Amino acid sequence: MPLEALAYPMREDIAATINLQFAETDAQSFVEHVLTEHGNVALVSSFGTESIVLLDLVARADRNAPVLFLETGMLFAQTLEYQQDVAEQLGLTNVKVVRPAAEDLKTKDPFGRLHMGDTDACCDIRKVLPLERALTPYDGWITGRKRVHGGQRKQLDLAEVEGDRLKFNPLAHWSGDEVRGYIEAKGLPKHPLISQGYASVGCAPCTSPTKAGEDPRAGRWRGQDKDECGIHFIDGKAVRA
């Protein structure tokens, strides 16, 4: 039965089964399972400070797997360069750059200053809406979210249901040490902003270096009651804080 024909309760059952069956499975095997057994699935990647791990796992499984890169128009120049370098080094052949709709920017943020007064609205037109459109042809998507990020991510499972799609988090249970260890062991390129104190990287205006002892995402929207952009949902509601 095609995934798009599955009723919501059936997707919930599939997610629950996955969380039990693959709880002790290594991430590489889980990624391979997701890409081969769950229909048309895309990896959504920010090409941020930890993204290289999941990008490498996907490349090892299938270099032609679709990778959606949200280019908000406000990313660091270092991230844009890193994205191109990583895609070339890993041999990823199906990276799709997802951008905000020109009409949305024209009508809602013509001067590129919306983030100064309403970060949620800015995230909506630069991340949420573009991703919704880009995910239309897919049955599910893969994310790099982890419990160690804290906040709303502390209870993450390997699989969850979001609307009419399954969402997979292969690194949900990984620690920061495991992420760094994998990068070192595989000799993977590091995001250039890591050396400047950035533990997590998003849009330049809303990202700051992380201080010692802080959660990895503490530098995102610092000083605001917000630690998510809204592309992830819980109980049907966009996650902001």
Rank of each mutant, 00 (worst) to 15 (best):
E50R: 03
M10Q: 15
E24C: 14
L6M: 05
N19L: 13
S46H: 06
S46F: 00
T49I: 15
A23T: 02
F22H: 11
A15S: 07
V31M: 06
H33C: 12
A23Y: 09
M10S: 14
T25W: 12
S29C: 12
V34F: 07
D13P: 10
A15E: 05
A16S: 13
I14K: 07
V41D: 02
T49M: 06
L35N: 01
F22T: 11
T49V: 11
F47R: 00
M1F: 12
A42T: 08
N40W: 15
G39E: 14
L20K: 14
A27K: 06
M1R: 12
A5M: 10
I14W: 05
T17L: 10
I18D: 02
Q28T: 01
H38C: 08
G39L: 11
S45H: 00
V31G: 01
A27V: 06
E50C: 04
A5L: 13
P2W: 10
M1A: 12
A16D: 11
Q28D: 01
F30L: 05
A7Q: 09
T17I: 12
D26W: 08
N19H: 09
S45T: 01
D26M: 02
H33K: 13
I18E: 07
N19T: 09
A16K: 03
E32I: 11
D26L: 02
A42F: 01
V31L: 11
A23N: 02
G39S: 07
G39W: 04
A16R: 05
A16P: 05
T25P: 07
